[in-house]
């Protein structure tokens, strides 16, 4: 139990730091699902699975872009929670098979909406900081302004890491419960979802970012050529 709590705290801590990188500070894009999940996989000694899961999640949330005043779905919170639950499952419950991580993606996808809601709430909370900054400027109190920035960072960190802890723990509970009732039929369903549905949806999301129609034609031609080469390679 102590082990488990430490691992959960680790996931929550990493998630908090990444949530800062997402919007509040630096923006080195370590918060992109691919990097975030690979990092988490590296920490939990599941590098190969982390990279693959990261690639799937990156494609699914490729179109989460922060344009101006618009707050998008929170891809970081969702993907870190999904990956965190999968890795914790591997450590404390049982072996990770494709059905488990497919199930995790299915359960965890809507967390991006919860994350968006959290971002909006934090933005509203920051209104108070803007008002306090006005007061600080009246008296030239630049330290106060620096402190307000610090406060906003701390708040973002704790809000996101506690949300991650709660979501990861509940998802792990769900995964453990569902794993017992998964019949062979359901494993088949999840296998098909993981092999066909999630990749094609991910590619579609990424393609929807392309600015020109010609881009989609180009992608289709590349697909045909590369697929032909790959199949030729195996039959030869």
């Amino acid at each position: 139990m102590v082990d488990f709590s430490l691992d959960l705290a680790l996931v929550a801590g990493v998630s908090g730091l990444l949530s800062l990188d997402r919007r509040a500070a630096f923006q080195f894009m370590a918060s992109q699902p691919l990097v975030a999940v690979s990092l988490l996989g590296f920490i939990f000694n599941e590098t190969a699975l982390g990279l693959m899961l990261g690639a799937y999640l990156q494609l699914l949330w490729m179109s989460c872009v922060l344009f101006g005043s618009n707050v998008p779905r929170n891809d970081t919170l969702a993907s870190v929670t999904i990956a965190g639950a999968v890795f914790l499952y591997g450590r404390h419950v049982g072996e990770i098979d494709p059905a488990i991580w497919c199930l995790a993606i299915l359960i965890g996808a809507p967390i991006c909406i919860a994350g968006q809601w959290l971002d909006i709430k934090l933005d509203h909370l920051n209104l108070g900081l803007a008002t306090q900054a006005d007061e600080a400027a009246q008296t030239g109190d630049t330290r106060k302004i620096a402190f307000l920035i610090f406060l906003a960072l701390i708040r973002t960190f704790f809000a996101n890491s506690s949300a991650t802890a709660v979501f990861t723990a509940s998802m792990l509970y769900l995964l453990t419960g569902l794993q017992g009732v998964l019949t062979a039929n359901w494993t088949d369903v999840l296998g098909v979802i993981g092999l066909y549905l999630i990749p094609s949806l991910g590619i579609a999301v990424a393609l929807s970012m392309l600015r020109h129609r010609r881009g989609i034609v180009l992608a289709s031609i590349t697909f045909a050529v590369v697929a032909a080469i790959l199949t030729q390679g195996y039959s030869a």
Partner: peptide, 15 residues
Amino acid sequence: NRLVHGQIISTWMPH
């Protein structure tokens, strides 16, 4: 208010 900015070029223009 900002006339031309990211939302216009990156989302509305292709849409």
